[in-house]
């Protein structure tokens, strides 16, 4: 493997290995209700970071496709969205498990939870939409437009609305920073690397899928 070209993959592995180890061994502040489950912060929240990055890049390529209709932009938009959906599912499931043992139920009518569920459905619809076209150009164009609308809905659902109303999530009606909970900053040292590590890993996974897709396209042309 070429290190100059693939350094970010190595960085992702290093960061995540550090998170997997220090996430359990590192000291965390003592908090009621959360207890040791506070460590889930290192694993549950980065799923959403990765999801947002993937959907963001996906939208970027959708915009690029509308400017310049090259099919590779459409491939990128769809594959980044696919990886984003995987991470959204992971975030939703891990959040549900965490909620069971801290809030007492698998699902609550918390704004952020419902927002996440609706957001995920919007992206499921993106996949269904893509599957419903036979013509490649038409599929690319219409799903690019839909993709832009999708992120325009996801941002208020997950970022804006939960800050405006009461939520069980930390930082309801304000900014969900963890400054008041973690005065010593011990969690930040694991949390930020975790976020970056998972974003890079998600990019790597998408990169592999895109390369397979490119190979498939070459094969199709040769047939």
């Amino acid at each position: 493997m070429n290190i100059k070209k693939n350094w970010w993959k190595a960085l992702s592995v290093l960061l995540l290995m550090y998170v997997m180890i220090w996430g359990f061994i590192g000291v965390i502040p003592r908090q009621p209700v959360l207890h040791e489950t506070a460590r889930n912060l290192y694993f549950h929240v980065p799923m959403w970071f990765a999801m947002f990055s993937m959907f963001g890049v996906s939208t970027w390529y959708s915009v690029k496709y509308l400017q310049n209709p090259l099919i590779e932009f459409d491939d990128k938009a769809s594959e980044y969205a696919n990886t984003g959906i995987i991470f959204a599912c992971a975030g939703l499931i891990t959040g549900s498990i965490w909620a069971r043992f801290t809030w007492g139920v698998w699902w609550t009518n918390d704004v952020k939870l419902n927002g996440a569920a609706i957001g995920l459905l919007i992206y499921f619809a993106y996949i269904v939409l893509r599957g419903s076209f036979k013509d490649e150009q038409q599929r690319a164009k219409i799903s690019a437009i839909y993709n832009i609308f999708a992120i325009a809905l996801l941002i208020p659902l997950l970022i804006i609305l939960p800050r405006l109303s009461d939520s069980l999530h930390p930082g309801a009606g304000g900014n969900p920073g963890f400054k008041p909970m973690d005065t010593a900053g011990t969690m930040r040292k694991v949390f930020y690397p975790a976020g970056l590590g998972w974003i890079l890993l998600a990019t790597w996974i998408t990169n592999l899928r895109l390369r397979i897709k490119a190979l498939e396209r070459i094969q199709e042309e040769n047939l």
């Binding site: 493997m1 290995m17 997997m20 592999l208």
Partner: peptide, 18 residues
């Protein structure tokens, strides 16, 4: 850490195959 390492080895393997 072992599970994570196995997944990463798998990813690296897939990467080199591609």
């Amino acid at each position: 850490a072992t599970i994570f390492a196995v997944i990463i080895v798998y990813l690296i393997n897939m990467d080199s195959k591609i």
